[in-house]
Amino acid sequence: MLAVMKCVVVLLAFVSLAWGQEQHCHCASIITTEEGAGLAYDLPPTEVQDCNNLEACELRCIDEYTVLTNDGDLDFVLENGETVGQVACNTLKPQGYDDVGPLEVFLYYNLCLGPWYYTGFKSQQKLCCVGGEHTPC
């Protein structure tokens, strides 16, 4: 389990560096497996004025993710016609996660390139991807 958590930290550190902005609130949902962690859903960062307001960043992430995913519903159909679960499978497939699940999807946040924190929010259902396609677990 310690190895998985280290992979989560490394994965989220790379996500932070990819954005290259210093003052932002960033939200990402991830899965964890015995082999490591995968980015399931990445929300665009939001500029902030205060890098000390962790609570505001956390609430923003939960609020935005709740609205976008209909409260973490992997079966919710987005405006593009795909389910939240299918978007997660599409995001995970290039990372080598063609077949995953059943796994919970956890929401994390980061403020101003600081450490990542778990929000306590997770998907309503467990995620299952078979050949990169979202399927019921």
Rank of each mutant, 00 (worst) to 15 (best):
G36T: 07
T135S: 10
A56P: 04
L113P: 00
Q124M: 03
A28W: 02
C61R: 03
L54Y: 07
K122P: 00
T32R: 11
T69N: 04
V9Y: 06
G20S: 13
S29M: 10
T33R: 12
E58C: 12
L92T: 01
A40M: 09
E55W: 12
W116M: 05
V87G: 06
C137D: 00
G96P: 06
L74F: 02
C128E: 03
P45W: 01
E34L: 15
V87Y: 01
E58D: 12
Q95F: 14
A18M: 15
C57Q: 07
K126H: 06
N70C: 07
H26W: 05
R60W: 11
C25L: 09
F76C: 05
G81F: 10
P102Q: 07
V87E: 04
P45K: 04
L12N: 06
C25H: 07
A28H: 02
V77K: 15
L113C: 12
D98K: 05
K93Y: 15
S16H: 01
L107I: 11
G20H: 04
L107N: 04
A18W: 14
Y65F: 15
R60T: 05
G132A: 11
V130K: 13
Y41S: 05
D75K: 09
W116D: 05
L39E: 05
G36P: 10
D42V: 08
N110H: 10
N90Q: 14
V15I: 14
L59V: 08
L113R: 13
L68A: 12
Y97M: 03
C27A: 11
C129R: 01
V130A: 10
L78A: 08
Y117S: 14
V67Q: 09
L17R: 06
A40G: 08
P44D: 14
I62Q: 10
D98I: 03
V10I: 15
E47S: 10
T33N: 11
S123F: 00
F106Q: 01
L59S: 06
S29F: 03
G131H: 06
P94H: 12
D71E: 14
C51A: 07
C89H: 02
C61A: 09
F14D: 11
A13I: 09
Y65C: 04
V9E: 13
R60P: 00
T46W: 03
A40P: 01
G101V: 07
C61G: 06
I62E: 07
E104R: 10
W116L: 08
G81I: 06
Y109F: 15
C129S: 07
A28I: 03
Y108L: 12
F14E: 13
L12M: 14
A13K: 10
P136F: 01
Q21P: 02
N70D: 14
T91A: 11
D63V: 08
Y41I: 08
V130W: 02
K126F: 02
L17Q: 07
C51L: 07
N80V: 10
L2K: 12
D99W: 13
T83K: 02
Y118F: 15
Y118E: 09
T83L: 03
L74T: 00
